[in-house]
Design a protein around this nucleic acid. Structure first.
Lengths: 232, 232
DNA sequence: CCTACCGATCGGTAGG
DNA sequence: CCTACCGATCGGTAGG
């Protein structure tokens, strides 16, 4: 029983789809971005180890030295995609130092931004949440630092809001874990072609997160900075 | 830059740990189970494609033909472990036909059982939730059928409880997705050696799930059948 | 159940 | 300094 032929054949069948993802970019645009777009699609479908450089290059209708001109190796391609998605999702709880709004107001905006980033980056997000085990320990550590900061910001806002009597929840850290789980595990079920359009999906999921921290308000509109978190 | 040597070296360093996992079984017990115990540990650490049969055999201090005597191939080892975990987690919402209790009471027990199964099987559960992409399409379909039944049972109880005025939530299907996410994504952060002992962890996480469906009650005690869902 | 291997394919690079 | 490849093959490892 061989495992390789199946994914390769499947990949060839889907070459058109992967290439189409790259087509969205302007014709003369950075070829590096074309590689990343195709690689993201294949990494999402087959995982890091299940995707070969030949598959990526076949989808690009090019050869390996072309990819190696832009990237040192397969790891670098993967880490570039993963890092972008992680930064997009994990900076949602950052606010400028002079932002004087109440904690629960900031938290509401932060949760909305987090959910919007998870929906917009659900493919590349999967690489960070699902494929971590095959990554370089240094890169894993870098991702962990980013996540630690996110959790710190999130827990701070949660506890401040609770101290102000605006929120209700029990274990702060576990509630934060549960919140992140909802965004992170989306790779397993979400598809943009589903029942709800992305904006409605973000709103519905955000209202579930609100409920988890005992926040009564509804997510009103797209948060101001959500656009910046979307993929280019 | 070579990638293979690193995981292999790491695996060899951890051979003692993986072997220790197998030691918990009685000496003359089924050798098949020893293979599964060691394999579960390594699959959890390195993923399906990142784990080689040589790594498993090194941890068992044996050679490949030994493993191939008990299993057809690497896929079969993986699927055996993954199937057990999936069944444990995904049957939590099943109740006998003559169980006449109210929907919200059954749901409370079901959520508790689900969470207990996720905590007890967090390692093997990761294989089902994280490594699906490298699996045989047939096995993926089998897992999807199991999940579909679980979601159907879960959503039915949720909507019945809501119709009875005992629960509050908005989108049924998305709330169900969010609930499963909390259990499924645990592979990314849970460790039995953490702050809370497993029983307390199950209780805390279950109360978060209760909140998501607007259930006021607290998880009281271990559900009767939770023990049966634990790993042997 | 082990020693000894196989067909193939992996990521990555050579010269042109 | 950059783009865009080719045919052939490197050292190692995969599942079996």
């Amino acid at each position: 029983m061989r495992k390789a032929p199946t994914p390769v054949r499947t990949a060839r069948r889907n070459v058109a789809g992967a290439a189409a993802a790259a087509m969205h970019l302007p014709n003369g645009a950075d070829k590096r971005e074309r590689i990343l777009a195709v690689a993201e699609d294949l990494f999402f479908k087959y995982g890091f180890l299940g995707t070969t450089l030949d598959m990526i290059c076949a989808a690009l209708r090019t050869t390996k030295p072309f990819a190696y001109y832009y990237f040192k190796n397969k790891q670098e391609i993967f880490e570039t995609i993963t890092w972008r998605a992680s930064v997009a999702c994990m900076t949602a709880m950052k606010f400028p130092a002079d932002d004087r709004r109440a904690a629960h107001v900031k938290l509401a905006e932060g949760l909305h931004r987090f959910m919007a980033a998870c929906v917009a980056n659900f493919r590349s997000g999967a690489l960070a949440y699902r494929d971590t085990v095959s990554l370089r320990p240094q890169f894993q550590a870098k991702l962990r630092r980013l996540a630690r900061n996110f959790y710190a910001d999130l827990c701070t806002l949660m506890e401040e809001g609770r101290a102000n009597g605006k929120l209700t929840f029990e274990d702060t850290k576990l509630t934060a874990r549960a919140i992140v789980s909802v965004g992170a595990f989306m790779y397993a079920w979400y598809t943009p072609e589903g029942r709800l359009p992305p904006d409605a999906m973000v709103r519905e999921l955000t209202s579930i997160l609100f409920k988890m921290v005992g926040l009564r308000a509804k997510p009103m509109r797209d948060p101001v900075s959500a656009g910046k978190l979307r993929k280019a």
